[in-house]
Write a protein that binds this DNA or RNA. Structure first.
Lengths: 206, 206
DNA sequence: AAAGCTATTGGACTAAAGTACAGTTTTTGG
DNA sequence: CCAAAAACTGTACTTTAGTCCAATAGCTTT
């Protein structure tokens, strides 16, 4: 899966690189060479004026689903983007795992709609929105792990082998294993597949 | 993760058992013993009149998210269910992998909204809805696998080990490995984690 | 300063996972 | 009926994954 991110800032955001180690960060549409394989095209909007420009070129991105990244997304923007053919719209500073989840959904033909928007669409003060999130927040996996463990967990959950994680973080494979054991212990899991389900399980609604 | 399904039919549907091998199928609310661990409570509606009855008891199901199963779900029903505190509503005859995906979403505090409803909520004839699904359908993983391979793939993708799959299907572990090799070959994958991402990747929108 | 958590790594080991090669039986379609 | 595909199984092997025991070093809290 190939990820193209278009942003006027050549450095992009750190989380992007963590979310997609093999990301291609470019400054203009023209630099996007439509690969034959599957992928996602992300466009960061620096101003709302840019929206029209971006959406106008969506048609040229033949196979790739397009996700709009905005620093201050509002619901109107999301609606516009979706109506114009984008597969989703989310905050530029979304956590790496959220970005990966968005990628999973849109690369399979789905649409990504954030929970806040969905809440307005449904238009009710559902008990679920009011209550469940709190219960769940008490057992967010992120809170149980150290920074390094979280980093390892994300890479593994996205399909990397221990060897690949080790190379990517410049540590020994042995250390990766140590982190994995700690992760399993802390989260009460059995293996990396369960970890993936735990981390990627919260998909579809941000 | 414990799954309780309430249905007046003591046998339930075959797909339910395939989706959740360790499912607890009961005939009445009273038979649901709220386990301390995480789980999902599924209620099958046999008539729309049952809706009020079911929703009235939602409050008693302390920790468990509730998903309404309907043989003929319509958008009004889904809206009612959500507004009353249900975490989702889907077709009783949904495919096993869809059920599992619903489970993943709701057990993590999310809401499940089907694509058709979302489409109406968004209220536009988005290009994404019109075009992408067709492209994607040409490479649906289900179409590339045999019946048995599909069955194995689903179990593995939901976190089962080879041994567990073998026991569940009453075949040798060796046979499971054979199926796995065939699956990897046909789908061009490397290991079971990639398979899980491929299968569970389409999450959040049915 | 001592205690505790985190990051790091090593050796050694057990257990799964995955592959290669080879074979039988059953099912399916022409 | 025959051919092809699918299902099933075995032995043997290589590679990952995961665990156990042990150790060093940095950083934080009491």
């Amino acid at each position: 899966m190939q990820h193209w991110i278009i942003d006027s800032d050549p450095a992009g955001l750190p989380d992007w690189h963590e979310a997609f180690p093999d990301l291609k960060l470019v400054q203009a549409m023209a630099q996007v060479t439509p690969a034959d394989q599957a992928g996602v095209l992300w466009c960061r909007l620096r101003s709302s004026a840019q929206l029209a420009e971006v959406l106008a070129t969506l048609d040229f991105m033949a196979g790739l689903p397009v996700v709009v990244l905005s620093d201050e997304p509002d619901e109107a923007l999301v609606m516009q983007a979706l109506a114009a053919g984008a597969a989703g719209c989310c905050n530029s500073r979304a956590a790496p795992e959220v970005l990966r989840q968005v990628a999973l959904v849109v690369s399979n033909g789905g649409l990504w709609v954030g929970q806040s928007l969905l809440q307005r669409l449904v238009g009710s003060t559902s008990k679920v929105f009011g209550q469940r999130p709190k219960e769940v927040k008490n057992e967010r996996w992120e809170d149980k792990l150290s920074d390094r463990e979280r980093q390892v967990a994300r890479l593994v959950a996205s399909g990397s082998s221990n060897r690949e994680v080790a190379d990517h973080l410049n540590i020994s494979e042995r250390t990766v294993k140590a982190h994995m054991s700690a992760i399993f212990e802390k989260l009460g899991l059995r293996d990396r597949l369960q970890l993936s389900l735990r981390i990627n399980g919260l998909v579809g609604l941000s």
